[in-house]
């Protein structure tokens, strides 16, 4: 699998959170092989008590998971959140990945009123704004699998 830190003029707003791959956008995580816990972000470890913490490996989560819960935010989030224009109302949700971890993110390109818990979701990128160098600055997001 090819893993890329940028994609066709798109750069992440903050590094080490997600990657572009030839198998879709993937959330970056780390797995502790000692206690079985997955972390997100990969650098915020939260081990099981008494874990030896010796065998932590960086991994990519599956591209697809299930909608664990969601909300529709009706007001624009204040800075430092930043998008080109006011995107409210916007969706936010938790997606449960088969690895056993739920990750939060924006829900875009989806009919928000049609969302239902348990439905299949996929990880995508979402361009928030264009920076001074002309890069499309992106975050990870989710949308319903059609």
């Amino acid at each position: 699998m090819e893993v890329m830190d940028t994609m066709e003029g798109k750069i992440p707003r903050l590094p080490e959170l997600f990657s572009w791959t030839d198998e879709g956008v993937r959330i970056r995580s780390a797995k502790c092989h000692d206690c079985g816990t997955y972390f997100f972000p990969e650098y915020h470890a939260q081990h099981r008590p008494d874990c030896p913490r010796e065998n932590v490996e960086k991994v990519l989560l599956s591209n697809k998971g299930k909608l664990n819960t969601y909300t529709i935010q009706h007001f624009m989030c204040p800075p430092p959140f930043k998008t080109d224009g006011d995107i409210a109302p916007y969706g936010l949700g938790l997606v449960e990945f088969p690895e056993g971890i739920c990750v939060a993110g924006l829900i875009v390109e989806t009919d928000l009123d049609a969302l239902s818990l348990g439905q299949e979701m996929e990880t995508i990128d979402y361009v928030m704004y264009k920076d001074e160098d002309g890069n499309d600055v992106a975050t990870w997001a989710f949308r319903a699998v059609k």
């Binding site: 903050l14 969601y70 935010q73 989030c77 959140f81 993110g105």
Partner: peptide
């Protein structure tokens, strides 16, 4: 820092979820 920069999640969002 992550939730304010990457996902736009003020506190009430957590409670709503």
């Amino acid at each position: 820092v992550l939730r304010w920069r990457m996902t736009g999640m003020p506190n009430p969002v957590y409670w709503a979820l």
